[in-house]
Write a protein that binds this DNA or RNA. Structure first.
Lengths: 116, 116
DNA sequence: CCGCATCCATGTTGATACTG
DNA sequence: CAGTATCAACATGGATGCGG
């Protein structure tokens, strides 16, 4: 409850916060999950797998994941071009977490449907 | 990649997306984690544990977690008032994942420090 | 002590058009 | 195919003051 957020030591060293900043955002969880399910996906395939994403957000999100070293980006200099995305080792380490989270989500969704 | 987001069936049923919407946001992860560590925390204690949060965001975030049935809110009608927060059973079910995520974050933070 | 209300700043996401 | 660029909308977060 103070003003100088940047100087807050709690945030700088809190690993929970650190982790959430890396996999938060509207699409990162799903992208990581789909890359885990399919091993390798091309740009267009990812776009079709997330029907609600725009090219802008897809590119932007993939760049962030790449910078954070969670995914690999492999470019084939061909015509037409081809770019493949896959999880890095660090990214793979997140999968057990996302798996559990997904199972939790499935359970909650079931519960919600029981009400209706 | 389309216009009508509300009608997208993929999002409506994707449990990964569902789960991330519930524990996403700037503070939810840390709040859940601290409530797990301390079992019960009062409003002011939570505020001090998250030094970078404002009362507005603290209240707002706690309400969302309460509505999603992840935390309990117990009000003592005393003077001065007292409100205690704790995890619900559903909220507790998330802890293994947050623990896992935290361990991953710790590891990444260590790696980053090794570079410097 | 535990909030709520208001107004404002910033950040995130979306729509659309266009390119190598 | 795999992106960029631009502008606009919307969501999130912050500062401050007030109230039961």
């Amino acid at each position: 409850m103070q003003k100088k957020r940047k100087e807050c030591p709690e945030v700088a060293t809190c690993s929970v916060d650190y982790a959430f900043r890396r996999i938060g955002g509207k699409y990162k969880g799903r992208i990581l999950w789909y890359l885990h399910e399919h091993s390798i996906l091309r740009y267009g395939e990812l776009g079709r797998t997330l029907p609600d994403i725009t090219t802008k957000m897809l590119t932007q999100t993939l760049r962030e994941l790449e910078i954070d070293n969670l995914i690999n980006r492999k470019v084939y200099h061909e015509v037409p071009p081809k770019v493949e995305y896959s999880l890095t080792e660090v990214g793979e380490e997140l999968i057990p977490f996302i798996t559990h989270l997904k199972e939790w989500g499935d359970k909650q969704l079931e519960r919600e449907q029981m009400k209706n």
